[in-house]
Design a protein around this nucleic acid. Structure first.
Lengths: 338, 338
DNA sequence: TTGTACGCGTTATCAC
DNA sequence: GTGATAACGCGTACAA
């Protein structure tokens, strides 16, 4: 239980703690033999410098923090893998916390990480988070912060995104090219930037192709499977069935698909479906779901590199917003069959 | 950037740091007015005690560490949610790290957490991990440790498991009851306890029903989708198609399913499938996959409670192994159709 | 080349 | 009821 400290080693070797310290941080002059001797006995004793004490002293910890809303879906875990790839190579440790889509937990997570003196954080906001004052304060203090995916316009710091507007546009256009006319959009929670952007892409694709948008064709659903199910069920009950649906994300699309199949509709013959944020399920469900794939690991890597830049360029740095490219994976769920 | 410390507050209020400290830890006598006054100005200044310094002093951190192999699949993330449920209520923060199925990273993670002075850890071993000496050392030192799912026989500490043997037995028996005779098992990596247990369940179900096991009916596949694909493809090429397959986990079963469908086999008419560790995909793929569901969140909660017990009963505690109940969710993939 | 002493932000133990 | 101070484990400027 008792940790072995630098003092224990010093006592054992009959020398001062500073000598031990120097042996570990080979910066200062120290006789090679003594250094080796110290390192050896230290290892034998199972000593390693206590990073907490070091952090307290140096005011930085060689740790970075990550806060994500959830990791039920594959998206965030994959981003984290990308983040770790970069930081582990650089000798940083990555501390991960999840907010569970709660603003309060998110704030607590951030404070915990801050208190652990992480050198920077990578964050994706929870659905609930409206108030970003605390982040503003951190940014003002010069605390290195990078946001991805769920970002806020109010925060002036580096961000990693994909062009939701563009890819929603392409996805919708794909449906239009397939010859579908009555196309609905299952939208996400209001107030989220990507909800807005994807919705706009949907609208503008219609405009470009001079296709009218019916009043009720944009439906605020949510982000989960049951949201898609619920809204689809409503439509079925109203007997208001579109030819195609572009959903704000895969779970919503999958929910709609489940409900449609349950009621005997064929996909894509009766209703075509397109999702977003390609999930692991997309290629596996029946029929395979057309979806916009995000380069998850690259999002992570990019965010990590931006954060690293920010950490290393202590002080002066220019916030960057990196827009990564998505990809529309076209599968059966949206193919017009003759 | 600069953190506000207790000294800053003391200076502002013209009193000593100890008074401030006392105001925050209401343990000692302190005049109520001064206490309130201090707390108020502290809040205004944005001061909060630095937990690192506290940890250094108290040799414990009110943090617990979690190390899991991956969170690509839904299993570990869900367990973590259960863990967090318990600890957040108790005022602990949960630090999560992932080993990426690498023994080396796992060890580094554990050491990082140890250095952060977490009060205990919950661990699920990586596939690679054979050497558990470091854990032995920790346990010997009295460091609170709980393992789940991927555990080692050599370690005498609390564990949370489901009865892999029993549920593999049931899953296999279910196939037998359906009338299948030529049943194969896609097994996991050798050396993992659950691989062995699930395999034994498979074997003993055959014994009980006096069904012979063919030589080549147990196939060491792996744990990933592509493992299932690869082994299934081999079987197809050899034209050695079983009537049913019990796979060590869902991804393997899904891989097999993908490959079978690709080659035009019907499920379950040509080949029936059963997975394990119910994944999010199981009910969604086509046909829906029969699988043994594990109570993921409860595994997390149980592990958390066991760890808490261990932390609080400083010293004397009896390692417990808790076996939780699974559930066989029977779906189309394994139903004998007339 | 090595040792001494201070400070990082706390809390606990003394005094007063 | 409050203030001074040692200690937690470490790095480093300074002295030796």
């Amino acid at each position: 239980m008792k940790h072995i400290t630098i003092k224990d080693v010093a006592k054992k070797l009959n020398c001062s703690v500073s000598t031990i310290s120097r042996a570990f941080n080979d910066k200062y002059d120290i006789r090679k033999e003594t250094r080796d001797h110290i390192l050896e006995t230290a290892k034998e004793m199972g000593y390693s410098p206590n990073p907490m004490a070091k952090s307290l002293l140096k005011q930085c910890s060689n740790q970075i923090g990550v806060v994500v809303p959830e990791f039920i879906n594959a998206f965030f875990p994959e981003v984290i893998i990308g983040i770790q790839e970069v930081f582990i190579k650089k000798g940083y440790q990555v501390l991960i916390m999840q907010s569970g889509e709660s603003q309060i937990t998110e704030l607590e997570n951030v404070k915990t990480l801050e208190n652990n003196m992480v050198d920077g954080m990578i964050i994706s906001l929870s659905l609930e988070t409206k108030n970003v004052d605390y982040y503003k304060k951190l940014i003002q203090q010069g605390f290195p912060l990078v946001f991805f995916n769920r970002v806020s316009n109010e925060l002036e710091t580096s961000k990693v995104l994909i062009d939701d507007y563009k890819w929603a546009f392409f996805a919708t256009e794909h449906l239009i090219y397939q010859g579908y006319k009555k196309i609905f959009h299952f939208s996400g929670p209001e107030g989220l930037m990507f909800t807005q952007n994807r919705k706009n892409g949907f609208i503008d694709a219609h405009r470009k192709h001079k296709l009218p948008i019916e009043n009720d064709s944009i439906i605020t659903a949510g982000l989960m499977i049951n949201d898609g199910e619920r809204e689809m069920e409503k439509l079925i009950n109203e007997n208001n069935i579109p030819e195609a649906i572009f959903a704000v994300n895969d779970p919503t699309a999958i929910g709609a698909m489940k409900m449609l199949k349950k009621h005997g509709y064929k996909i894509p013959e009766d209703v075509a479906l397109v999702g977003f944020t390609e999930s692991r399920l997309a290629p596996l469900i029946d029929p395979p779901l057309t979806s916009v794939a995000q380069p998850t690991k690259e999002i992570g890597r990019t965010a990590a590199l931006l954060l690293l830049e920010q950490i290393e360029s202590k002080g002066i740095f220019v916030p960057q917003t990196v827009i990564l490219n998505g990809r529309l994976n076209i599968r059966e769920s949206s193919m017009k069959l003759k």
